[in-house]
Design a protein around this nucleic acid. Structure first.
Ligand SMILES: [Zn+2]
Ligand SMILES: [Zn+2]
Ligand SMILES: [Zn+2]
Ligand SMILES: [Zn+2]
Lengths: 143, 143
DNA sequence: AAACTTAGTGAGAATCGTTCTCAACAAGAA
DNA sequence: TTCTTGTTGAGAACGATTCTCACTAAGTTT
């Protein structure tokens, strides 16, 4: 089991959630993922660890992980994708609509300017991550 | 008929699209909208102009308008919302998840910094509008 | 104006992602 | 081990979007 998965389990447990077999499997999958995965993809991978896992449980576990701040949900088209996120401050997610890789970028320069303007307008952002859809460098060259 | 609607019709016609009754109705609704509307809302309003319009045609017309750059699609939760967009340069959409009002903000200061960083990473943004979900000033105070 | 070609149409079925329901289960406390 | 109750899987239900297909009408050609 990965360290990341262990940390998440510990945190969930501390918050009063039960650490069940299916949850263990989903957490392990998410912790190991190198790109954002769809719920269906997470289900397929989780079943290699615990064959009995159901799709509903994947959704439920993703909800829990998101509520506890261990995961962020990302949308490409109609499909919902999930991603473990490290950065805490306001930052951007560059989401490649081809390979679904998510790159995080951050700069105090524009974050500061943006936050100032949001305050000026009186808008309160609910998410700390802003999504930019497009094509990553690799996928541009291989198109 | 609004000027905006007429301009859009002219542009579509020039691109080879037929200007049909249902399309006229949908275009008129979108051109007059002061906030983002859901396809169902657009349908209801369009039927006041042309009672026979079907939901499928609303979706199809929205697709055309989007493909031709007269409209941007915005997502709040699962629902798809549409919005006529004026700004051409890179800008932000502040989307209130309560009242669905969309405010556009723009500043060369952070746009420049952001574009520079996107280029540095080699990421090519497909959309000129970046969405920030949250609560507008009005809805914050009345919550 | 009439005929013609074919893009566009409405109704409803189909599909997709997600949520709900509920009887059965099992994690963790005692 | 027993008990409590949070959690589960299967499938039904749901809401948004897309598809199908026979029919219609926009715009072009006569
Ligand atoms: Zn992030
Ligand atoms: Zn890519
Ligand atoms: Zn815009
Ligand atoms: Zn609002």
């Amino acid at each position: 089991m990965s360290k990341r998965a262990r940390d998440i389990q510990k945190a969930l447990s501390a918050s009063g959630y039960r650490i069940t077999q299916p949850r263990r499997a989903v957490i392990e999958v998410v912790a190991r993922a190198r790109r954002s995965l769809s719920p269906e993809e997470i289900l397929a991978r989780a079943r290699k660890i615990d064959p009995g896992v159901g799709l509903a449980t994947v959704y439920r576990t993703l909800d829990v992980l998101q509520a506890e701040g261990h995961l962020e949900r990302v949308r490409i088209g109609n499909r919902g994708y999930s991603l473990a996120c490290s950065e805490k401050a306001l930052h951007f997610h560059l989401i490649c609509e081809r390979c679904r890789t998510v790159t995080e970028i951050q700069s105090d320069q524009f974050s500061g300017a943006l936050i100032a303007q949001l305050q000026a307008v009186g808008f309160e952002s609910r998410k700390s991550a802003i999504e930019i859809i497009g094509l990553c460098a690799k996928c541009q060259s291989s198109e």
